[in-house]
Structures are given as C-alpha cells and as structure tokens.
Write a protein that binds this DNA or RNA. Structure first.
Length: 478
RNA sequence: GGCGAGGUAGCAAAGUGGUAAUGCACUGGUUUGCAAAACCGGUAUGCGCGGGUUCGAUUCCCGCCCUCGCCUCCA
C-alpha cells in the first residue's frame, strides 16, 4: 500500500469525496462507452484516457477494480450509417468496435473487465421496462413506444440541477421540442424507453411486449449496470455532456425500477476543445488517432496531451501541444536512458508488478497529487522537478534503482509508456540526405570544417539534424 | 433566459492567505572544431478590471468585463 487514498470530485455532491469500495474489496465502476458508427475522435478518447488514469490510480493504490464499459451498437446513427454502408447493423458495429479496441490498445488503455453491448442485452432492457411499468413509472403510447414518466420520480434533476426543467427550457429548446413530432408523450420532459418500429429502421427491430421496436439509448446503461454491477455500485463516469439528460435518465430508470441506490459517485470529464472551440465535423477540426498518426504523432504523444490537463477543466488541443508532448516525453526518455546506463540490466516493471509493490519512491509528491482529484498536470510538474534534481550521474546505484521504479510507477499511473530516445529506433533516411550526410562526415573527418558546416546547414535546411558522436553520427528529422 | 466552468509568463498548465510548480518556446554561460545532448543560469515585481477584508491576497468577499460549455445528437 502506498499510504495515500484517492479523493475525487463528485458531480452529485458537488464536492470531493474519498473513494473507497462499497464492498470493502473491489471498486466497481461503469463508464459510458462509445457509439460505434465511426472511428472515435480524440475528444472521445480524452474521456476514456481520464477514466483509465482513474482506474490506474485506484489499482496502484492497492484496490482492485471491476471496470465495466459498454458499447452502444444500436441507435439512430448506427442504424443510419450501417444502411449507408450497405452492411448489417451487426457487421457494421463489429467493424467499428474492432477499430475502437485497436485505438484503445495504442493509447495504452486498460481493457475493461466487462464490455457489454446493447443488442446483446435486449432482454435485460425489456425486463427493466416491465419493472418500470409495474411500478407506475412508465407508460406505453398508442404507437407502441414506451416512455418514462418523469413526474413520477421526485428526485429527477438532482444530478444536473434542472429540477423544474420544463419551466427552465430556453426559448430555442422549446421551439425545437414543439416542432418535433413526438406528440405521443404525456409531457415534454418524458423520455423514451422503447422506440416503436419505424420504416427507416429497416430490419433493425426487435419484439417486445409493446410491439416491434428498439430500446431507447438511456436504457442500455441502466440495464447492463444492473446486470454486472447491481443496484448499488461505486462510481459512474462519462463526459460532461452526458450529465443531462443521459445520466439523469439513467438514475431515474434505475432507481425507479429497483429501488436501489445506483451510483454512489459521479465522475465527469470536461471536453476537449480544438483551437479554443468545440470540435465539430463541419469545422474540420475533429481528429482521430489515425489523423494524428498521419501527421507523424504517436498514440503515446497524443495520450500525453490528453492527460496533460486536469480532467475537470476543458483542455485546448493544438498541434503545438503535440510538439511539446514529444519534447517532454523525449526528456523523460533521455533521463530513463541515463538511469539505465547507471543500472545496467533493468526491466520495465509491469502494471501488475507495480500494484504488488506499490511505491512511488522519490515521486511521493506526484503520487499525492494524483490522489488529490487526479491532478495529472500537477503530478507531471512534480515528476520533472524530481528529474531536474536527481541527475542519474549523481545517484548511487541504489538511488538510481529507486528512481527507476518510482518513475515507472508514476508513468504507469498516467498510462505513459516511456518511449525510446528518438534516433535509437529505425529512421528512414532518404538516399540523397544520406549521401549529403556521408559527405559531411568525410569532410569532418578530414577536418575540413568549412565544408562540414556548409553541409550541416544544407541538411538542416532540408529538415535533418546531424548529431555527432565520437566515431559515428545520427540523422534526425527536425 | 437558466445552470456550470474559467480568465496565471510568447504558448500550455499547476498552485497557495505570506509573496508564483512544471513542459514547450526563447535566451546567457560551460562543454563540443561547429552542432546535438548534458550541465549551470535567465525570462510573470506579477496571477482579467475595480473596490473591500487582512499585518499581508494571485489565493477570501462584492461589483464589472471577457471566454467557453450544457439546457433532450454528443465523450
């Protein structure tokens, strides 16, 4: 044990609270997962990365977790786009789920212990609707849709603080709502649990006691949480935009169907902005991991950026921040290399090994920051402060080993894999650049400094940096 | 209109009732033939503006200005 316990801000309590498992053993938590109708963008990943850091800190602190994250594989968008792609819904969502898993792997996200899909849990959802009907919290409309009766649940709005929301609806929202054709609802506030079959759904409908149709979006999380985490569990997490209505609706559905407590703690991750504003497809600033890789940035560099702002603060993404991330990671990489030289043969401890011998060593301050509402930027600052003070060459072997373990401990908490020092891996050098560099090396060996420097300049102008060592040199792209 | 978050150096981003971490960028020096790396140092008399409380506020209170997000597609 590390002797520090995690305090985390709770959206519902509007205050920080200690995180401790309800059952005294395992921290059980749920994260709203992606809707798989395309590649996730880095904004989506910001949330998943923040949740991953949460899980890592909990585990490294000595508490095992049960992490459940769903896959939304049926909704308007998945149906619409699968049809556009000429694929069955199942094939379409399976493909995007695989892509999602691939990206998660590259970003170093620990896979959830359970990853349920909505379609595979239709019986659970239908059962929940039946419960809600029995208890008088839901009603079927003439067209076969089923709605949750918001007025039947007095606590509705507690999470989002929109208690009397019909009265508070902005002018724009009212206009939109009344223009829509959902006249079958008793109240504007009621939300759909079961959507009756529509022609545009094609083959994507399922049988229910209320007729053919498909589940409402909010329902899947409630049903799957009940199945895998029960009526009462530790924490629920998602992006801030889910506070209302999604999480509010989940609470209503779950509490009304079971009488249980539902989530004890709510963690919400602020949005990623791009160039100071919201990301959107129309602005062309919606980046995927693929987009950034095409520009030469690794998934780890992206992760470093995503993790680099406090999770409750909007984070502005820019390409400059990716450049800065690369430099910062290289600084850590060079430091780690220095330690390695000091230590000889050392291995990189795994997450499991670190859990079993949890010890932040000289990075206790950084670890404390992480345990204070996951203050990652503060922790990173502390890490560099230590690196600036503990130079590998000045450390005893024992001290170096300590720093090595501690550094990996903190990096593991952040999910950062320390990269190789650039240049130590394979770099493809164009033949003409290589030729220039060889000529320069010959000139240098011949102590023809003028020619050597001129060629260095030429290489720099071509975007290549020459690093000289005693009897060799390296070419690095600038 | 309602709710919420925020305005800290060129950029990013922590933090504290007692005088501003850290990363990037920039920059002086040591070192290197020159570079790179490394090492030593510099770069906000200042934390949106105006008041107030206090021995002392960037940190608390009040007012104002500005930015961003949410208000049933949304991580």
């Amino acid at each position: 044990m590390t002797g520090v316990s995690l305090r985390l801000y709770d959206t519902l309590a509007r205050d920080s609270r200690d995180i401790a498992p309800l059952d005294g053993e395992t921290l059980r938590f749920y994260c709203c997962g992606p809707t798989v109708y395309g590649p996730a963008h880095i904004g989506n990943f910001r949330t998943f990365v923040a949740q991953d850091v949460f899980r890592r800190v909990v585990e490294l602190g000595g508490t095992p977790t049960l992490h459940v994250r769903n896959i939304t594989d049926v909704d308007d968008k998945t149906i619409r786009d699968s049809q556009k792609a000429g694929q069955t819904l199942d094939a379409f969502t399976r493909g995007w789920t695989e892509k999602f898993h691939h990206d998660c792997g590259e970003l170093g996200l620990l896979p959830p212990h359970i990853e349920p899909g909505a379609v595979a849990h239709l019986p659970h959802q239908i059962r929940m609707i039946e419960k809600l009907m029995e208890r008088g919290h839901a009603y079927a409309a003439p067209d076969g849709s089923v709605y949750f009766k918001v007025s039947s649940y007095s606590d509705y709005g507690r999470l989002s603080h929109l208690e009397d929301r019909e009265l508070r609806l902005g002018a724009a929202s009212v206009a939109t709502a009344t223009d829509s054709d959902e006249y079958t609802k008793d109240s504007l506030a009621d939300f759909v649990l079961w959507k009756s079959r529509k022609p545009e759904d094609g083959e994507n409908y399922w049988a229910s006691p209320w007729g053919d149709g498909r589940p409402g979006w909010h329902l899947e999380c409630s049903a799957m949480i009940l199945e895998y985490l029960g009526e009462d569990f530790d924490l629920h997490s998602g992006g801030v935009d889910l506070v209302f209505p999604h999480h509010e609706n989940e609470i209503a559905q779950s509490c009304c169907s079971t009488g249980g407590h539902f989530a004890r703690h709510w963690m919400h991750v602020a949005h990623l902005m791009v160039d100071g504003g919201k990301m959107s497809k129309s602005l062309g600033n919606l980046y995927t991991l693929e987009d950034l890789k095409a520009r030469g940035f690794s998934a780890m560099e992206t992760r470093y950026v995503l993790v680099g702002g406090h999770y409750r603060q909007p984070l502005n993404f820019t390409f400059h921040s990716l450049d800065a991330a690369r430099q910062a990671l290289q600084k850590i990489a060079r430091y780690a290399k220095g330690l390695k030289e000091r230590l000889g043969e050392v291995s990189v401890p795994t997450h499991e090994e670190l859990i079993n011998s949890a010890d932040p060593a000289p990075f206790a301050a950084a670890w404390a920051r992480l345990n204070d509402d996951l203050n990652v930027p503060g922790a990173i600052g502390d890490v560099f402060s230590v690196l600036n003070q503990q130079k590998p060459s000045t450390l005893s072997e024992e001290e170096a080993a300590n720093v090595w373990r501690g550094l990996h401990f903190i990096c593991d908490a952040l999910g950062i894999v320390i990269p190789a020092v650039i240049g130590e891996g394979d770099i493809e050098v164009p033949a003409e650049i290589q030729a220039l560099a060889d000529r320069r090396w010959d000139a240098k060996m011949g102590r023809d400094w003028a020619t050597s420097d001129a060629l260095r300049k030429e290489l720099e102008d071509a975007g290549w940096l020459v690093k000289d060592a005693k009897d060799s040199y390296q070419l690095l792209p600038k």
